[in-house]
């Protein structure tokens, strides 16, 4: 359990671990409510976002690596480049939004290298296995995998 997770993620994991069962869901709901909306450049161009079919509810995400260039238009940004994450999920899908909120809070602003090092079983470390169905947790893993793939492409080429 002593993997070196980014501090921001470790804090979230510790917060969930410290809570009793109903409060874990309440915290997930807070993440759902706090998920930032899309900036205009994406809100007006939903086609720039990648769908995550692993999730049971519609969710789309996009990453920016380095100084904000779009996918495929620039040279690789390098592993020290800063990553920004953007998500879109409807309010009728609060669990999915909650997972997106966790990933946003835990990963946004980290370097590409830090994001690529996040273990793929992150969803299982959130102590949510008793509150959320396994299929849902796999959806979160799907989001992480897609974030990491995008970051890899954009940072390392």
């Amino acid at each position: 359990m002593s993997e070196n997770l980014p501090e921001s993620l470790q804090e979230i994991i510790d917060d969930f671990a410290a809570l009793a069962e109903p409060d874990k869901l309440q915290l997930l709901l807070e993440f759902s409510n706090e998920l930032p909306g899309l900036p205009e450049r994406y809100a007006d161009h939903p086609e720039l976002l990648e769908p995550v079919p692993e999730c049971q509810s519609p969710i789309f995400l996009v990453t920016e690596v380095g100084d904000g260039e779009q996918a495929g238009t620039e040279a690789p940004a390098g592993e020290d480049a800063e990553v920004r994450l953007f998500f879109s999920a409807p309010p009728e899908a609060p669990t999915t939004r909650g997972f997106a909120g966790i990933l946003h809070e835990g990963l946004n602003g980290l370097t590409a290298k830090e994001i690529l090092e996040v273990p793929s079983d992150l969803a299982l470390k959130l102590s949510l296995n008793d509150s959320v169905s396994p299929l849902r947790l796999r959806g979160m893993s799907g989001m992480l995998a897609r974030i990491q793939r995008q970051v890899k492409e954009k940072a390392l080429g």
Partner: peptide, 22 residues
Amino acid sequence: DEDVLLYETGHIPGAVKVDWHT
């Protein structure tokens, strides 16, 4: 609901939640 959090985002006044999974 299928979504374990949906009830918490708003429900019929007085309705209680019963979750299939938990």
